[in-house]
């Protein structure tokens, strides 16, 4: 046991010097993965736990390590979502923004006069003329005296 610990310490020194082989690094990882780590070496355990996690995650992305299918799917799904979610959200907002803008434009002056009578559309001048005149007469019939007197009040308005 003491010999093993000495061995590990030696490997650790070489590891920090950058002089360990892949096999020796695997020995260190295996040692620090176990529960029973010598007290004098416990400070290094979190470091090898961290490196071990990073190694597994990188392997997942490079497909080097076999992991349970569901975990791999979720990991790839998370990467995909974080990369493309902003683009998807931007596309949706652009769609609704353009639709909203054009929807309002539709209510703007279209340039062509139209009449609907009982839901049927007419664009000929004769129909437009007669219907408009009827409407104008309707809005003003029998009220000429009232309107004339009221219009005089408009002269006193200065707000506009």
């Amino acid at each position: 046991m003491k010999r093993d610990i000495l061995n590990i310490k030696q490997l650790l020194d070489q590891y920090f010097e950058g002089q360990t082989s892949l096999q020796e690094e695997q020995i260190l990882r295996n040692y620090f993965q176990q529960e029973d780590v010598d007290e004098s070496l416990t400070e290094y355990k979190p470091m090898f736990d961290f490196f071990n996690e990073e190694r597994v995650l990188n392997s997942i992305e490079e497909n080097e390590v076999e992991i349970p299918g569901k975990v791999k799917f979720l990991r790839m799904g998370k990467v995909w979502f974080s990369r493309f979610s902003i683009g998807i959200a931007a596309s949706i907002m652009l769609f609704f923004g353009v639709k909203f803008a054009f929807f309002n434009q539709k209510k703007e002056v279209s340039g062509q006069s139209i009449v609907y009578v009982d839901g049927k559309k007419f664009t000929d001048r004769k129909t437009i003329r007669s219907q408009t005149l009827n409407t104008l007469e309707a809005i003003s019939e029998s009220e000429d005296d009232v309107i004339a007197s009221q219009i005089d009040i408009l002269d006193s308005f200065n707000d506009f």
């Binding site: 002056v109 279209s110 340039g111 062509q112 006069s113 139209i114 009449v115 609907y116 009578v117 009982d118 839901g119 437009i128 219907q131 408009t132 009827n134 409407t135």
Partner: peptide, 25 residues
């Protein structure tokens, strides 16, 4: 506007321009 018994009129620049200051009726 498009129901039976209704008359809906929309006058635009093709009729209004050059004759009144209205832009939409």
């Amino acid at each position: 506007g498009k129901q039976k018994g209704a008359i809906l009129i929309e006058l635009s620049t093709d009729i209004l321009a050059g004759h009144t200051q209205m832009k939409l009726y």
